[in-house]
Design a binder for these strands. Structure first.
Lengths: 330, 330
DNA sequence: TTGAAAGCGATACCAG
DNA sequence: CTGGTATCGCTTTCAA
């Protein structure tokens, strides 16, 4: 493998000069520049990143903590981060915490041990205090938590607002008996969505019916089970708000199994807007989370933070996307 | 930051000894071992990976080339690779080629520049020869191509067989007019599936009807369009074999829009078995590709290859999973 | 078993 | 503008 020294020797200059040329650290006379350029070309010299890393103390790598590699939700965000990092010289090192605080902490330690220059954290179960602590060792940008420290920044999307929009939509379409399939009760977003549901009913003076609120788990299976319980309870309802799209998929299948049509018999609205929600039968009306944009914003922000540039973060917004799973009634 | 030298100094030994202790490179007397251990503990010493990397010439990193970060198909494989690498000391560096040969080559160069110790390649458009060439610079394990060099190994799943299974299933259920929505014609797997479709019809002496074979693109939109064309062509058919699950989703929506029921009016079978296929309405009968297992196998194999261990690769198999989108007729 | 010392390959300071 | 040289932190001969 050819090194700076060889290039230097062949070009008749010093290694320092080659380095300067390579990094544009200082002016290099035209003739030497030419010589160096041609030697690099001829010897097909490529700097050894490992040596650069050691010398500069930076790995030009961004650690990314996701919660799942196989979730459409997180994948989108990862793709966004990836895009943002394109051409910056930083590469993402992706690890998954599987919604498990200890595992997250462990993986992050691994990332730090690998000397990542920055960390992007997608949701998770770590406490804000822990993240703030970590941020003393490495700059952090997080999604799903409001953070604002010197080396830690984080934003959330307004899940409460999104839920309000969803329920509002249902009510405007004439629905008054609206079921809610909740998410995990230890999940901040799930809670916000529940609150939005409650408050919006209240706002419209619709009395909340405890029986219409059933547990889910943000997975299809939870949605399916929830609908079965709902149906067995004998409660009347014309619409259901599912805490996320996966839940809606499961719910939709449960309905299908009972021969209940969507939206003719029951309207369904979701939350997230996963890719496939455009192709469910019927296409799902849902609250869109712009996860790709979120990821991109996260990626750009961590790079700015590393470079000590002003952050001016672009926080993408939720919005309701109306498709065909909600029917106007009454 | 504390270094080996500091640890050595405080423990009253040499840096070499600390290093040996750390790597188990040689025996270290018990008393020194104790001393070193306690100093490491007390000083909370963590070796600098960057320095190790430079010295050993290895980054303890595996480059993984995927084609998409947001595809359920590739995500599964990535998760498998990730699992396989867990606890090996190797971390995956994931890049995406977006089904674009040039981009793939570029990204791979980036990975090599970062001194990855091995490469996992998931499908893509590079030619086998290119990969073999690359494998002189870094060991490679690939999916979606049959490779067997000293430093390159690759396997495919038997898409032809899978397609035969699918069509066979349809025929056994009494279908004789079977449409096929193809995948991209420059995609090896898509071609194999088409062939399987053709050969199986032939095997059962069902005359192939060119009109029943329509183009798709492995995406939902292609499936949707294809069905519209199919329906407009006025051809009669009772079942359709979709080149992949996404295509089936799109097809299913097109059918839904026309009020055509699945499977009562038309049976649908897919290929891949994405997660969501279990929750479509109706749940999709499809040929399962065990992508997670594929990824895991790939991950294990690249590590073995790096360590010069015998490979004995475990190649997972396709299998038909029967759900509810196919009806028995006749 | 242990230590001294020589690098790994680049960068950056200090003279000139 | 350029070159010599120390240095980043670790691993690994080579001798003892």
């Amino acid at each position: 493998m050819v090194t700076v020294h060889e290039v230097a020797r062949v070009a008749g200059v010093s290694a320092a000069t080659v380095s300067r040329f390579l990094n544009g650290t200082a002016r290099v006379s035209d003739e030497k520049r030419q010589a160096i350029e041609s030697v690099i070309e001829r010897l097909n010299y490529k700097p050894n990143v490992l040596a650069q890393n050691l010398k500069t103390g930076s790995s030009r790598t961004i650690g990314v903590l996701t919660q799942s590699l196989v979730s459409g939700y997180f994948s989108d965000a990862l793709a966004g981060v990836d895009e943002a990092l394109q051409g910056t010289g930083y590469a993402p090192l992706i690890v998954s915490g599987h919604w498990h605080a200890e595992e997250e902490a462990e993986r992050i330690e691994l990332l730090i041990a690998r000397r990542v220059d920055g960390l992007v954290i997608l949701s998770g179960k770590l406490r804000d205090a822990q993240i703030l602590g970590l941020s003393q060792r490495v700059p952090i940008v997080a999604f799903g938590r409001a953070l604002d420290g010197p080396r830690a920044y984080g934003f959330c999307l307004d899940n409460y607002w999104g839920a309000c929009e969803a329920v509002e939509h249902l009510i405007l379409q004439g629905h008054r008996h609206i079921a809610f399939i909740a998410g995990p009760s230890d999940h901040q977003d799930a809670l916000a969505r529940l609150e939005g549901y409650r408050d919006t009913l209240a706002k419209h003076r619709i009395k909340e019916n405890q029986q219409l609120i059933v547990d889910g788990d943000f997975q299809e299976s939870g949605g399916l089970l929830a609908v079965e319980r709902l149906l067995e309870s004998g409660q009347r309802f014309s619409a259901m708000f599912c805490a996320n799209d996966l839940t809606a998929y499961g719910a939709r299948l449960a309905l299908y199994r009972r021969g209940i049509r969507v939206p003719e018999d029951i309207s369904v609205i979701g939350f997230d807007d996963l890719h496939s929600s455009m192709y469910t039968t019927p296409p799902l009306t849902t609250v869109r989370q712009p996860l790709f944009d979120v990821g991109r914003s996260l990626g750009r922000t961590i790079v700015k933070m590393i470079n000590n540039e002003p952050l001016d973060v672009d926080v993408p917004q939720l919005n309701l996307v109306v498709r065909e799973s909600v029917r106007r009634i009454g």
